[in-house]
């Protein structure tokens, strides 16, 4: 289980970010205040946390010469996830 969690860590971080933003967007709509600053900041905090997570995974694996497949997938996943997380954060900023 730990092996799989590590291999999929980047993608799991993406999933956490997406869920957080979906929840934040729903709460924003539910409270229906005119001022969205609170929720936008919450989305930003979630984004920074998740990006830091991606960074940690990347730092732990690096792009060494021939890493084992799980390490490689963790690194690539974090890289891809970081892109998607930035895009989703843009979406929240433009909310």
């Amino acid at each position: 289980m730990r092996g799989w969690s590590w291999m999929l860590s980047g993608l799991l971080i993406w999933a956490a970010h997406f869920s957080a933003l979906y929840a934040i967007a729903s709460l924003d709509a539910q409270t229906s205040a005119d001022d969205h600053t609170l929720w936008t900041s919450a989305a930003l905090v979630a984004t920074l946390l998740c990006l830091a997570g991606c960074g940690l995974v990347l730092a732990r694996t690096g792009f060494g010469a021939a890493p084992a497949l799980p390490d490689r997938l963790a690194a690539l996943g974090s890289l891809g996830a970081a892109v998607a997380i930035c895009w989703q954060a843009l979406g929240a900023l433009f909310g």
Binding site: F18, A25, A29, A43, G91, A92, G95
Partner: peptide, 13 residues
Amino acid sequence: GMPRMSVNVFSAA
């Protein structure tokens, strides 16, 4: 007619 923040996040994904 979803709230805009949701729409945007789904568009990004």
